[in-house]
């Protein structure tokens, strides 16, 4: 899923300061799962903002609404009426959702309420970890299902570096060394020979280094 984290109340207040009527717009997909922008978070944030504004004796109208997915036009349309009643939208979706709203409602200011962080997974309750950079050319078959591009701090394809100690990364002792896991996993799969091969420089054209990407599915074009 796309993992995101809600911005602080202070930053959100600063972002919405120029507006008097703001729609707090949630998204019921990824950001709901990571507790950043689903219906519940929209309600909690709105209450917190109201409390803060009461304390500041500031008048601001906040309206709540949540759609199933902010990155799909079909779902965004459901928010049309609410959007037209307000001066601005505070979107609690990921960056794709914020931009989808901006594209659909080009006269309405759309403000991000969430920092989109990474493509990851829920490792355990309260812990999300980055697993994929979306580089567009998946080589997980070689690395035993563990991605060195996303999970090694230096993106090493022929790792590990000299800073791997006791299974942790030199950058942060709380972070596992991806290469330690790759080696352990390939050893248990009896595929350690994969790592004897030289891995040539990565062709980054499939990543966003090649510019903004598009995926065309001819079979789905109506």
């Amino acid at each position: 899923m796309i993992v995101g984290e809600q911005k602080t109340i202070a930053e959100i207040k600063e972002i919405i300061a120029p507006y008097s009527r703001v729609l707090v717009l949630g998204c019921g997909t990824c950001v709901k799962t990571c507790f950043a922008g689903g219906e519940d978070e929209v309600a909690t944030l709105t209450s917190a903002l109201r409390l803060a504004y009461n304390k500041d004796a500031k008048q601001i109208s906040l309206e709540e609404f949540t759609v199933e997915r902010q990155c799909e036009d079909e779902f965004i349309q459901e928010a049309s009426a609410a959007i037209s009643r307000n001066d601005a939208v505070l979107s609690l979706a990921c960056g794709a959702g914020v931009q989808a709203i901006a594209k659909r409602f080009y006269k309405v200011p759309v403000l991000p309420g969430v920092n989109t962080t990474f493509i990851g997974m829920l490792e355990k309750h309260g812990l999300f970890t980055e697993e994929c950079l979306g580089c567009g050319d998946c080589k997980l078959a070689v690395f035993g299902g563990i991605c060195p591009i996303a999970r090694c701090s230096k993106k090493l394809l022929n790792g590990p570096c000299g800073g791997s100690q006791n299974g942790t990364c030199e950058v942060d002792p709380e972070t596992e060394c991806a290469w330690q896991i790759i080696i352990e996993r390939l050893t248990s799969l009896k595929q350690l020979d994969n790592l004897k091969k030289y891995i040539a420089p990565k062709d980054w054209r499939s990543s966003n280094a090649g510019g903004p990407r598009k995926l065309v599915r001819e079979d789905h074009i109506i």
Binding site: P160, G162, S164
Partner: peptide, 22 residues
């Protein structure tokens, strides 16, 4: 460079071999 003291130890020689091949 080579670090004989880093982990995983068993892999260090394999990495040296790769550098030589490279």
């Amino acid at each position: 460079a080579a670090n004989p003291f880093a982990d995983p130890f068993e892999y260090r020689v394999l990495r040296l071999a790769k550098k030589i091949d490279a």
